[in-house]
Write a protein that binds this DNA or RNA. Structure first.
Length: 601
DNA sequence: GGTCGATGTCATGAG
DNA sequence: TTCTCATGACATCGA
């Protein structure tokens, strides 16, 4: 509620604040809010004289009216229907109250003075008079105008206020009217900060300064909200509103509670008009959906699709959709998210292996799984086949009469399986030359999958092979728990899952094996190259060593030839030898001595 | 009809 | 204990 009013409050809050300040300052002078309105100032000048004369009288009347208001307030509170009564009395007939208030005012107030003022105004402001006569305020008794005004966008309250003000001005000159305005001053002072800033409320109260009803709205901080917003909803929608919000129409209090609860959720930033626009279309749509299920049901699958949202998810059709659609989505998503539970080898290397579904449809990056990929393209593992496999169990197990949606996939499937078989036979028979290896593998894969599919079909297992194989454990268990299967079905499902897992594992394993073989071959080649290199290096090193030995021998003999004894005779290499110690010194050691020393040692 | 390659499946062990 | 994965072995199918 408050959110609904905020736009209007914000639009003229500053102006109203100023008006309030000035008005409070001029309260003693008997000036009303309209005094600060440009259109009213001129009138006010003329009326102010009369006001000054009757100021004392108004003060006395003020006290009396306060008492009367308080009495009525208490009276309403005692009945406990103050809040409820105030709202519905205003809401259902917001416009009707206006004329009644006017009438009551003229009756209660000084009609003659009002007429005189009107005449005076008519003479003074003929144009204003014309506009006033045609103003919606006088016509506010007619619901359409009120609704139209109230249904206007929040951005337009100024426009709404402008036409409404003249009537208030027209009534304002009345002394009683002004008196009533002053009468509400204490409450205004109390509630002004909270409520009076709201233009619509101000308009709803001031233009029709009924004796007490307007003041109620002022007295009750919460009521004006409901009062303002509710009339904006066409009466014909109120029925739906009541339907959608049980108890809302029972009493304003309930309505307020309901609306106060609803407002924060949806109408945070929505205007009251938007509030109605937001809720009623939905209500209408829902009501229509609930009211007209038969036509849709009779139409066919399309209408059922429309019908399903409104229908409870426990319907058989939805059950199928739930069991079929959700797992598909979840599966596809999981497949996208979780490439596979297989080892990393399979992830990047074999898209088809990791997850049969995805892998089968993926591009055959590796030749090892090309066949699988190809056969998966058109094979049972393809997405279309997946969908039809999905429809398979549901079509058979769906207890509901909604066979329209299931018939199509079922029929397609029924048509497709024979089609596949026929195509295989046609390929085998028509093509004289043997098909490609991929085709063979494809057919093999199809035959494999078709076997599981046929098994599942035979046992009426409400899952697809891909689901059984590829779903994670938790999802698989959840899926199994959702469907009560007998022992053969459970066994078959587990076998299918086991076989599928093992098939993928075997593919991965063989692939890894092939990769290992390839890697080992590469390693063997590299090792052979290394061996050749090492052999060549060894040969080079041997030749180099021999060359160095030769050089050393030559140098040795040369050194020996330079050595001479005391007599100048050269040492014989046979008798002596050169030996080098650890410190680098070279000694000439006689071979005989050496042998003797060795023999002695 | 035997062989080979590819694939599926089973059994088994490890994590 | 159960599940999953990896892997050897075997079976099947088609060329």
């Amino acid at each position: 509620m408050m959110e609904i009013e905020l736009p209007k409050l914000n639009s003229s809050q500053q102006d109203m604040d100023m008006i309030d300040i000035l008005w409070k300052q001029d309260i003693d002078l008997g000036a009303g809010r309209e005094v600060f309105d440009v259109s009213y100032r001129q009138k006010e000048h003329e009326l102010q004289k009369q006001r000054a004369l009757e100021e004392e009288k108004r003060q006395q009347m003020l006290l009396e009216q306060e008492k009367a208001l308080l009495a009525q307030l208490q009276l309403d509170e005692e009945t406990g229907e103050f809040v409820p009564r105030a709202v519905p009395s205003r809401q259902p007939q917001p416009a009707t109250d206006t004329p009644s208030e006017n009438v009551g005012f003229t009756v209660d107030g000084e009609a003659m003075s009002f007429d005189e003022c009107m005449e005076l105004l008519a003479q003074t402001f003929p144009l204003v008079e014309a506009s006033e006569t045609a103003s919606p305020c006088l016509g506010t008794s007619t619901p359409p105008t009120a609704n139209s005004q109230l249904l206007m966008a929040p951005e337009q309250p100024p426009l709404v206020q402008t036409p409404l003000l003249p009537p208030t001005q027209k009534t304002w000159p009345d002394l009683d009217q002004a008196w009533m305005e002053l009468l509400s001053i204490p409450e205004l002072e109390q509630c002004l900060n909270m409520q009076m800033q709201e233009p619509s409320n101000y308009l709803s109260t001031n233009p029709v300064p009924e004796a007490q009803d307007p003041s109620y709205g002022l007295f009750m901080p919460g009521l004006p909200d409901a009062v303002v917003t509710q009339p904006k909803c066409p009466p014909e929608f109120m029925g739906n509103f009541e339907v959608s919000f049980p108890g809302a129409a029972t009493g304003p209090a309930n309505l307020l509670s309901q609306m106060s609860l609803k407002a924060p959720d949806t109408a945070v930033s929505a205007s009251p008009d938007e509030f109605c626009d937001i809720y009623y279309p939905d209500l209408l749509s829902t009501s229509k959906a609930t009211e007209t299920p038969e036509p849709c049901s009779t139409v066919g699958g399309v209408c059922q699709v429309i019908e399903t949202p409104s229908s409870s998810p426990l319907e058989p059709l939805d059950v199928r959709e739930f069991s079929a659609g959700d797992p598909i989505m979840s599966k596809s998503e999981m497949i996208m998210e979780f490439p596979d539970s297989d080892s990393g080898l399979s992830l990047d290397a074999s898209p088809n292996i990791s997850s049969p579904e995805k892998s089968m449809f993926g591009d055959g990056s590796l030749g090892f799984s090309d066949s699988d990929m190809d056969d998966s393209d058109s094979g049972p593992g393809s997405e279309s086949d997946y969908s039809e496999m999905f429809s398979l169990p549901f079509s058979t197990t769906s207890p509901s009469g909604t066979t329209t949606t299931t018939n199509t996939p079922m029929s397609q499937r029924k048509n497709r399986n024979p089609k596949h078989a026929k195509t295989h036979l046609a390929e085998a028979s028509v093509h004289g030359k043997p098909p490609f290896t991929k085709d063979k593998a494809k057919r093999r894969s199809e035959s494999r999958l078709s076997r599981d599919e046929q098994r599942a079909k035979a046992l009426q297992i409400p899952f697809t092979v891909d689901m059984i194989i590829n779903l994670p454990v938790d999802d698989f268990n959840e899926m199994m728990s959702k469907h009560q299967l007998n022992e053969p079905q459970l066994a078959l499902v587990r076998d299918i899952r086991r076989r599928g897992k093992n098939k993928v594992a075997a593919q991965n394993c063989r692939k890894r094996k092939m990769q290992n073989i390839v890697g080992l071959e590469c390693d063997l080649d590299s090792l052979k190259e290394e061996r050749e290199r090492l052999l060549h290096e060894k040969t080079e090193n041997s030749s180099s060593l021999r060359q160095m030995k030769q050089q050393l021998n030559t140098l040795y003999l040369e050194v020996f030839s330079l050595l001479q004894d005391e007599q100048g005779r050269p040492y014989s290499p046979a008798d002596y030898s050169l030996q080098q110690t650890s410190d680098g010194n070279v000694f000439l050691v006689p071979r005989v001595k050496k042998t003797l020393i060795k023999s002695d040692g």
